[in-house]
Design a protein around this nucleic acid. Structure first.
Lengths: 198, 198
DNA sequence: CTTCCCTTCGGCACTGAGTGCCACTACAGT
DNA sequence: ACTGTAGTGGCACTCAGTGCCGAAGGGAAG
């Protein structure tokens, strides 16, 4: 595939990194799109050609991750119970290479802290939930838009975000453990008369 | 308490109703704040004194409902298992008088359909989840910000929204039933090897 | 009725996100 | 050089939201 026409002046990754650095340094609301564009050496108009909004910067290439999660889900054997399949897939999906850990932490802090980003994230979570719902629907041979798959999608999302919030609060905690504990908490709620803290 | 100074020119309820009517007629994004203000016979500046943003119009007096849900939760006896207490409180909280049903439907359709509103709702959901989390924490004698109460808050929210989405799709369905079914779906996921559709 | 004080109103000007339009720039192949 | 093509970025515009401040109304004391 040979390129034709002018070459791109930058990349999604570069803008994303530059923007995030500014957000972390000075706070999301204190950074304007003009400044991000200037810091990247591009025009403001070009910024909006790479990212539909300022809110999309911290998400990077989320769609790629969704695809890989879907593939991972499909690769797990049907003999494993649904809840464990979901739990394992979510744990694997949320593993981060140690060298990116600090960066990922800061990114997630923004996403779960800055009101504007918290709100905007809903849209991304929706796609995420849909991946879960689609998988559940296929497993149970039902419609992905039905109550059961949608509810399970929401439950998985809730467990994940609650775990992430704890992870950000406690430097030393393991995200994988927190996710497992979250699933246990949900299970206890449904199973026991009174779930106990662990 | 005797009033002093100029009387308010309008009310939250009036602006809210007028705005919603316009949203339903022409679509959320096709209505500007200027138009809503004009329709209410107030200045644009005054609009923003009543509502912090255009997105807040459909929520009305949500804080009142939160308070009543908290009270209702506290009024339920401790002998009832936590999951049932939560389920019952949520069902009661989401009951609507028949005469307001149509209005409530349109309101919720906006909130769960318009991207901008879906995103903004996160903030309201957060308070809602916190009411649940606080209650759970008190019942289990643990911190409201811990993993368990927060996770349960998320699960309850997820079940509720998934139920609402079904309710909007199926005119004839009962919201209470859908909420109950949602709790059962979550329970089955956690307990059974494979939950079955009902 | 006038004056004082209080509260709400709303105009004005400003910032900042996001968009449509269009000319310009750089590159590949002929 | 010429042409087609894809990325760039300036300009002008819309709209949400904010700070400022004088004007509009209304109660109470004189």
């Amino acid at each position: 595939m040979v390129r034709i026409g002018r070459h791109p002046a930058t990349t999604h990754a570069e803008i994303s990194h530059t923007g995030l650095r500014l957000f972390i340094e000075r706070g999301f609301d204190q950074v304007t799109v003009d400044e991000i564009a200037a810091a990247c050496g591009i025009g403001r108009r070009t910024f909006f050609r790479y990212f539909p909004s300022k809110n999309d910067l911290p998400w990077g290439q989320f769609d790629d991750m969704l695809r890989s999660m879907r593939e991972h889900l499909d690769s797990l054997p049907r003999s494993v119970p649904l809840r464990d399949t979901l739990r394992i897939a979510i744990v694997v999906f949320n593993r981060t290479p140690p060298e990116e850990l600090q960066y990922h932490r800061e990114r997630m802090t923004l996403l779960l802290t800055v009101p504007s980003l918290v709100a905007h994230s809903t849209i991304r979570y929706e796609s995420w939930r849909q991946v879960i719902a689609d998988f559940v629907a296929e497993r149970l041979d039902t419609s992905p838009s039905g109550l059961l798959p949608q509810t399970i999608g929401w439950v998985c999302l809730g467990v994940s975000i609650a775990a992430y919030e704890q992870w950000l609060k406690h430097e030393d905690a393991s995200l994988s453990d927190l996710l497992d504990q979250g699933f246990l908490a949900a299970r206890d709620l449904m199973l026991l008369d009174e779930p106990g803290p662990r």
